[in-house]
Every structure is written in structure tokens, then in C-alpha cells.
Simulated assay, not measured.
Amino acid sequence: MDHLTVIETSNDLASMTADDIALANYEVLRRAGRKASTVNQYTQTEKRWAEFCATRNLNPLNFEVVYIDAFFQTLKDAYSRTTLQNMLSHLRKAVEAIAASSDDTAALYLRQLQAMRHYKIDASWGGMNSHKRGGKRLPTQTVYAALNASASNPLLKARNGAFYALLFFAGLRREELRQLKWAQVDFDRSVIKVVGGKKRAKDESDEIPMLGDLKTILQQWRDVQALSVQGENRVYVISAIRKGGHLAADKPIASGAVYELMRPYEAMPHDARHTLVTNLLEKNVPLHTTQKIARHKRGETTMGYAHAMEAEQLAKTVPNPYG
């Protein structure tokens, strides 16, 4: 693969530039309503592809499968299999964009696109990033920094406060938070009914207590939300807010937005859950109670947190055996 040479191309193909790719692809993404972060991911993949072609004196506008395979052979140990699959999808979209941009080269690129659709990322590929990162415990000051973070408008500040409170005080998983409805929040009983979730049937439910400041924060968010829509009943607890400071459609917040809200704290959504469970155990909350709050199907999962915390405490208290 290191000795690949440039395939002879037609004048029409050779006359296209990298800017033509970017322009055509940008137009496809714009029409599809893709957000800026998604467009950036596509751009990064195209940049890696262009760099790969430059080092091998290849035409970056030629997407023959033999070159696509050579490209991924250089990346298979550096990225997770999921990331590699996403990159392949990005390149397919680029070829689709070019095919749609010119009638003269459409046939060529449609043929290459068809071949790329049959190309698969090998199941054995994926380097050290392929393993899911375990949760990490966040400091208490980080938790309250998130809960009290400033925002560009009062509506956004109240929504974000509720978002972080559900993660840190209820330990909701990403999809549980996204799909949470006001009908599942019982302020009278101070409980939240979580429907479905990990390793549960879609209609299976658990009730969890509103710990800490969660109830107060949710009530404040409900009042602010109701005021912003003039009393209209909203279904979902956490939804998007437009740049102008107005509530978007009554539907779950996007998955990408969940990760973006955790990014300022260099954390993932699961880290909030990890922090909650670890703190409960550290405060000597019984194991079975912690398991119920965390909605762990198996007690061994909760025990894993306890063992990790015990090891952490030992590292702090046991003296140097050779000191």
C-alpha cells in the first residue's frame, strides 16, 4: 500500500480542487441542517484524508476502495472502531456531495460511492480508544460550579441547572435524562419515575428519590419554563433553547448537546453518575440503598464502586511499606 501511485484521471476530475470538495460537502450538510460540531467532524476526516493522500502523492479526489482501505489501515490502531466507522461515513458523504455537484463526473463518483458502501470496517480494528472509559469522580466544587454556572439568559441558566441537577443528584443516564417527562416527576412524593433504561424492558420503571437540591431546582425550572411559554403544558423536562433565549420544540434535547454541556468540566455524562454513587458510599449509605438509587440491576455493579473507593482510601491512609 505504501507504493500506491496516482490513478490517471479525466480532465474534468483533475480540474477539481480540494475547495470544490469542501464547498460541495458544506452545501449537502447545510441543506441537511447539520450543526456546526457535526460539520467540524466531517472537516477533520477530510483533512486526515487529504494529509494521507499528500504523503503518498495520491489524488485526494480519487476515492477508489483500494486507497480507502490503505487510509484506514494507517488509522485502525489509533482510533476506536466506532470512530473509524464514522470516518468512513464522512468520506461517503463527501463522495456523494461531489457526485451531486457535477454532471460530468457524477457517473464516476456514483460508482466509487457504490463500492464504498460495500466496504466495511473490520471487526478486529480499533486501538486503545476502543475500550469505553470508566467513569471518574468529580470534585464537589465542580458539581456546584456546574449547578450555578452563568448563562447568556435566565431561561438557559434555569434549564442548565435542572440538567446538571438530574445528572448529579439523580444519577440519570444520558438517554434517561433526554427522555424524562414532567409526568414522571412527582413533587408531592419527592420521587422521579424512570421508565426503561439500561438492561430494563421499555415499560419497566423504577422510582428514585429527589436528593439534595434536586426538587427545588426542578421546581424553579418548571416555573421558568411555564412562564416562557405562557402556561403551555410542556412534555419533556429538558429540551433545547434557541440562541434568542426561547424554548425550542417540545422534544428531547439532542444527544450531542448533552456531551457539549459536560465539556466545560472535562467530563462525560456518566461521570456525574459515578460521582453520585461514590459519594453516597463514602457517606456510608447502605449498599442496597445505593444500588436502588443508582438502579443497578446487579449488586455486583454497586460493589465495584465500593471496592474502587476502598482502594482509593487505602492509597491515602496506608503508609509507605518501605518508608
Score class of each variant (00 low, 15 high):
Leu218Gly: 02
Lys243Ser: 08
Tyr259Gln: 01
Gly231Ser: 11
Arg263Pro: 05
Pro269Trp: 01
Asp271His: 13
Thr278Phe: 03
Gly244Met: 03
Thr278Ser: 15
Arg263Ala: 14
Glu282Val: 07
Glu260Ile: 12
Pro264Ile: 02
Thr289Gln: 13
Gly231Cys: 08
Met268Asn: 14
Ala240Leu: 00
Met262Cys: 10
Thr216Trp: 11
Leu247Ala: 03
Leu281Met: 03
Ala272Asp: 06
Gln225Phe: 09
Ala267Glu: 04
Arg234Trp: 07
Ala272Gln: 03
Ser255Tyr: 00
Ser228Val: 01
Ala240Tyr: 01
Arg242Tyr: 06
Trp221Thr: 04
Gly256Asp: 04
His274Phe: 13
Ala249Arg: 11
Leu281Glu: 06
Glu266Ala: 14
Pro209Asp: 10
Gln291Arg: 14
Gln219Glu: 11
Tyr259Glu: 00
Met262Thr: 10
Gln219Arg: 14
Leu211Asp: 12
Lys215His: 11
Ser255Leu: 10
Gly256Tyr: 14
Leu276Thr: 11
Tyr236Thr: 02
Gln230Asn: 13
Leu227Ser: 14
Asp271Thr: 14
Thr290Ser: 14
Arg263Phe: 05
Thr278Trp: 04
Thr278Cys: 04
Gln291Asp: 06
Pro286Arg: 05
Leu211His: 07
Ala249Val: 10
Ser255Asp: 09
His274Cys: 04
Trp221Ile: 01
Ser228Thr: 00
His270Glu: 03
Pro252Arg: 01
Arg222Asp: 12
His274Ser: 07
Arg242Pro: 04
Arg234Ser: 07
Pro264Asp: 08
Glu260Cys: 05
Asp271Ser: 05
Thr278Leu: 07
Arg222Ile: 01
Ala248Glu: 02
Asp223Glu: 10
Gln291Trp: 05
Lys243Gly: 13
Leu280Gly: 05
Arg222Glu: 13
Pro209Lys: 02
Gly256Ser: 10
Lys215Glu: 00
Pro269Ser: 00
Lys243Asp: 03
Ala254Gly: 13
Ala240Gly: 12
Gly212Phe: 11
Gln230Leu: 09
Leu247Thr: 08
Gln219Gly: 07
Glu260Arg: 15
Glu232Lys: 15
Val237Leu: 08
Lys215Trp: 02
His246Ser: 15
Ala257Lys: 09
Lys215Ile: 02
Tyr265Pro: 08
Val277Lys: 06
Lys283Ser: 15
Ala257Ser: 15
Gly212Gln: 10
Leu211Gln: 12
Thr278Tyr: 01
Thr278Ile: 15
Leu211Tyr: 10
Leu276Pro: 11
Gly231Gln: 04
Arg263Trp: 12
Lys251Cys: 11
Leu218Gln: 05
Glu260Gly: 06
Val229Ser: 15
Gly245Pro: 07
Ala257Glu: 09
Leu218Ile: 03
Arg263Ser: 13
Leu281Trp: 09
Arg273Lys: 13
Asp213Leu: 08
Tyr265Gln: 01
Leu227Asp: 12
Ala226Thr: 15
Asp271Leu: 08
Tyr259Trp: 14
Gly231Tyr: 06
Leu218Arg: 08
Asp213Gln: 08
Met262Asn: 03
Gly231His: 11
Leu287Tyr: 06
Ala226Val: 11
Leu218Ala: 03
Asp271Arg: 05
Gln230Ser: 07
Glu260Ser: 12
Leu280Trp: 05
Arg242Leu: 09
Ala254Tyr: 11
Leu287Asn: 07
Gly245Ala: 07
Ala249Leu: 11
Pro209His: 06
Ser239Trp: 10
Val224Thr: 14
Gly256Phe: 12
Leu281Val: 00
Arg222Phe: 11
Val237Thr: 00
Leu261Ile: 12
Val224Arg: 07
Ser228Cys: 02
His288Thr: 08
Ser239Lys: 08
